[in-house]
Amino acid sequence: MELKYKGKTKDVYSIGGNQVLLKFKDDVTGENGVFDPGANTVGLSIEGVGKSGLRMTKHFFELLKTKKVPSHYVSADIEDVSMVVKEAIPFGKGLEVICRFRAVGSFYRRYGAYVQVGDHLDSLVELTIKDDERGDPTISKDTLSMLGILTDVEYEALKQLTKTICRYIKEELATKGLELYDIKLEFGRDKATNDIILIDEISGGNMRVYKGDKYIEPLELEKEFFK
C-alpha cells in the first residue's frame, strides 16, 4: 500500500482500482483537551476511539446502503481498524457539511445573541471549507458558485442529500434513546463516475449526541448504541 495522506483522525492508503484504504486513529478533533466535532485541530486522543468510530461508521454506511444513499463505502475490517472505500475527488480543497438539530457548539458561539443553548433547529445545513490556517470558515452558496467549488444545482443537491442522510442517522440513534444535536459530513465526487457521494466516516467523532440532557462522549456513544 502507498500512503497518500496523513489526516487528523485517519491515514489514507492507495490500494489500486480506484479504491483507497482508510486507517482509523485514536485521535478526535477539539480544543484545549475538549472534544468538538466542529474543531479543525486534533484536541485529544482517546484509546479505542478509532475502532469504536469504525464500528459505528460501518453500521451507518450499511444502513444508508439499504436506503440507496450514494457513498464511498465498500467494506470494513473492525479488527484491522480500516475501511476500504471508493476513491473520491474533493470539492475544491475539501468541504465539510454540518447539519444542526440544536443550537450548541460553534453555532451557539457565533449566534448566541439570537438563540439559547439547546434551542431546536430544523436540520439546518451549514458548509465550511477545509482550511486549517483560516479556521475552516463557513461559506455561502453564492461564494461557492463564484469560486467554482459548487454550482447552484450541486449545492441544492448536496443540501437535500445531507438532510436526508441526517434524518436517517437521527432516527436510528433515536431507537436507542439517543438524540442527535449536530453532525459533520463530507462529500466528494466518485472518481470513476463523477457522481456526488458521501465520504469520510459517520461516528461519534463527528457528531454530538445526548441522552436526555447528558452529552455522550464518542467512545461511550458506541457502547450506548450497541448495548
Results as ranks from 00 to 15, higher is better:
Lys211Met: 12
Gly148Glu: 08
Gly50Thr: 04
Thr9Ser: 11
Leu124Tyr: 09
Ser123Gly: 07
Val153Gly: 07
Gly118His: 02
Lys170Ala: 15
Asp11Asn: 15
Asp36Gln: 07
Phe225Arg: 07
Lys227His: 15
Lys211Pro: 08
Val104Ser: 02
Leu124Val: 14
Pro218Lys: 01
Met1Leu: 07
Glu31Thr: 10
His59Leu: 02
Ile46Arg: 02
Ala174Thr: 03
Asp182Phe: 02
Leu219Arg: 13
Gly30Thr: 02
Gly92Asp: 03
Asp182Ile: 06
Thr9Asn: 03
Leu144Ile: 10
Leu178Pro: 13
Ile129Cys: 09
Arg109Ala: 06
Leu185Gln: 07
Cys166Gln: 02
Gly48His: 03
Ser75Asn: 13
Leu161Lys: 11
Glu222Gln: 15
Val69Ser: 00
Gly43Tyr: 04
Asp77Gln: 06
Thr66Leu: 02
Val97Phe: 00
Tyr73Met: 06
Asp80His: 13
Arg100Ile: 05
Leu150Asn: 13
Leu221Cys: 14
Pro70Gln: 07
Leu173Phe: 14
Gly16Thr: 12
Ala113Tyr: 09
Arg55Asp: 04
Met1Val: 14
Leu127Arg: 11
Ala113Glu: 11
Glu220Asp: 13
Asp26Met: 03
Arg110Leu: 00
Val209Trp: 10
Asp122Pro: 00
Lys159Trp: 05
Met83Lys: 08
Leu221Ala: 10
Ala88Glu: 04
Leu173Arg: 14
Ala76Gln: 08
Lys65Asp: 14
Ile98Phe: 03
Leu198Gln: 09
Lys68Glu: 14
Lys25Arg: 11
Cys166Ser: 11
Arg100Tyr: 01
Leu64Trp: 14
Val104His: 06
Asp213Asn: 15
Tyr5Met: 10
Lys10Tyr: 05
Lys223Ala: 08
Glu62Asp: 12
Thr9Leu: 00
Asn18Ile: 00
Pro90Glu: 07
Asn18Cys: 06
Leu147Asn: 14
Arg167Ala: 05
Asp213Val: 11
Glu154Ala: 11
Gly212Asp: 05
Asp27Val: 01
Ile165Thr: 12
Ile139Ala: 10
Ala39Gly: 09
Leu121Arg: 12
Ser140His: 04
Ala174Tyr: 03
Glu47Ile: 03
Ile216Leu: 08
Ile15Gly: 14
Phe35Trp: 10
Asp80Trp: 04
Ile78Glu: 13
Ala174Asn: 13
Leu221Thr: 15
Lys191Val: 10
Gly50Lys: 01
Leu180Tyr: 00
Val97Ile: 15
Lys68Thr: 13
Glu2Pro: 04
